[in-house]
Design a protein around this nucleic acid. Structure first.
Lengths: 113, 113
DNA sequence: CCTGCATATTCCTTGACAAGTATATACTTA
DNA sequence: TAAGTATATACTTGTCAAGGAATATGCAGG
């Protein structure tokens, strides 16, 4: 049971997570959109699922995969201890995004179900 | 030159970064505090420096290492695209538990960790 | 300069892991 | 039931990176 950062270290897994950030997708959709071989996709999804990054539901022969929040919260928690090093100095953009995220709950969209 | 997530995937490197989050330290201090062999420390510091995570200044025979902010900002920027998943974490969890309660009134805390 | 200390680097071995190929399982429809 | 589709798993192989031991470099004081 590897830690969250070891999981995310793999570029293809980051690509899959990035795709799923938009909406849920089947294995075949991931395969086509990211130009990866099907076993590769399945194996990475297996790792992601074991690590809690994704969950799936069965839709006929397909499996629909979507994100789960906890591992991202865990990564963010780790980053917290370094936040004072950059949030104040370098990046006004990210602070901006942080605030928008906290102060804009009215922007609820993408109700997937 | 690997990406930031590959750098941070290594547990000893995360430990070093965590220690440097407090204050700057020499190689020997890192070695003693984290119980790592000296070449191991030096090699990891080399990787961290090449990736821009740390910088060093010379103090007599010692090198003092401290953090640099940019890579952390980069990681945070990547996390941004998932932020809505965990910032609404409580909501998501509640919805999830609601659905689970329909089938099993058993309260699970962490799934498969 | 020589000695000692702090750090860096080199070489080597070993383990992990990702990709490819082939095959297995599961579900759907004719 | 057979055939087709979607996904998962087994097995093998090549690559790469971490750790250990030994050694090299750089700096300070006598």
């Amino acid at each position: 049971m590897p830690g969250v950062f070891e999981i995310v270290a793999e570029p293809n897994r980051r690509a899959i997570l990035g795709l799923l950030a938009t909406s849920q997708h089947s294995v075949g959709e991931i395969e086509r959109r990211l130009h990866m071989a099907q076993p590769t996709v399945s194996k990475h999804l297996r790792v992601l699922r074991d690590a809690g990054f994704v969950e799936s539901t069965i839709d006929a022969q397909r499996r629909l995969y979507r994100l789960r929040p906890e591992p991202f919260a865990e990564m963010n928690a780790w980053l917290d201890q370094f936040r004072r090093f950059w949030s104040a100095r370098v990046d006004a953009l990210e602070r901006h995004l942080d605030r928008m995220d906290q102060s804009a709950p009215h922007k609820k969209k993408t109700r997937r179900k």
